[in-house]
């Protein structure tokens, strides 16, 4: 960790922006101290492999403060993951070299969030005014200038745009994650870590909606990539024990709950639960799951389409 910390060279944001100016040095927060800085919220940044946080408070005589937080993470994928937890807001092109999609910076109501390689920025104006908005965006531009802009995680871009005929990917509901706490904040599966997510796994959670249909006509799709095939099988066994075996699951002609780990290794398996049909498929070290399908046919079609 000390090597990582040593290599995490501080970024020097502008000393002044508009009427605001910053102190000479940032408040530096190590992962072990994150709860002291932000209480339980620190879990989120640990889940995205925080290396260190640098925070500056910009102050001005006649204006409320602006807080600049620079979260250095282990990889660009982690930075993307943090931004992907909420695609809401107004896209802002902080750097003209950035690809057009997906957005890498989003602004709303005084808060700018941005992903820049292994850096996640959060710039918050205590009170939004025209001047504070300009200052917030200027700070964002200054921090990302000249930094690399790697592509999003492969898992997030490999999702098919359409599944099961008429279900279309909601691009504003695609989240990259590594933690069951983050998963539960998007889609609650269980208080236990049923999918065996960890710092060494990669996962994407996505929603698909049927074109022209109202609210409930949607599917949830998760793709998890484990370090090894064994880890993927262990996760599936855990899901069976923790999720399916708690209650009776109805066999859909694709294997009963008892058969899940074994059968899923070779083919698609589906079961009916309280909110529709769930299904699973293992391809090597990758696990694909679908929830809330209206029937087994749809679940199978989804699992057949979402492949490594």
């Amino acid at each position: 960790m000390s090597l990582i910390l040593a290599s995490a060279v501080s970024i020097a944001p502008p000393v002044r922006v508009g009427a605001w100016s910053r102190p000479e040095s940032p408040q530096v927060v190590a992962p072990a101290d994150i709860f002291g800085y932000m209480d339980g919220a620190g879990e989120l940044y640990l889940a995205y492999r925080l290396v260190r946080l640098e925070a500056y408070e910009y102050t001005a005589e006649e204006e409320d403060p602006i807080l600049l937080e620079l979260y250095r993470l282990e990889s660009s994928d982690d930075g993307y993951g943090l931004l992907s937890s909420d695609w809401g807001g107004e896209p802002v092109a902080l750097d003209s070299a950035w690809p057009a999609t997906p957005p890498r910076a989003l602004y709303g109501a005084g808060l700018l969030r941005a992903w820049s390689d292994d850096l996640y920025l959060r710039v918050l104006a205590t009170t939004e005014t025209a001047a504070s908005r300009a200052a917030v965006i200027e700070l964002g531009r200054a921090v990302v200038a000249g930094r690399p802009s790697p592509p999003p995680p492969e898992l997030a871009t490999a999702l098919p745009e359409t599944v099961a005929g008429s279900y279309q990917l909601r691009i504003d509901r695609v989240t990259f994650l590594r933690s069951h706490l983050v998963l539960n904040s998007i889609y609650f599966l269980g208080t236990a870590n049923l999918l065996g997510l960890s710092r060494t796994t990669e996962a994407v959670a996505a929603s698909y909606a049927r074109a022209g249909a109202e609210g409930s006509a949607r599917l949830r799709v998760f793709v998890v990539r484990y370090p090894t095939e064994d880890a993927a099988h262990e996760a599936l066994a855990q899901l069976r024990e923790g999720y399916l075996h708690r209650f009776d699951a109805t066999d859909a002609g694709g294997g009963s709950a008892d058969e899940w780990p074994e059968a899923a290794a070779h083919r698609t398996v589906t079961s009916r639960v309280e909110d529709g049909w769930m299904g699973c498929r293992i391809d090597g070290r990758q696990l694909v799951l679908v929830f809330e399908a209206p029937d087994a046919v749809t679940a199978n079609a989804v699992l057949g389409k979402v492949r490594p």
């Binding site: 599966l189 236990a192 209650f247």
Partner: peptide
């Protein structure tokens, strides 16, 4: 450690879980 799942929540069996 509590282990409450989505299915418990939908079934109203959180207490039992």
């Amino acid at each position: 450690q509590a282990n409450v799942t989505r299915r418990d929540f939908m079934r109203g069996t959180v207490g039992a879980a």
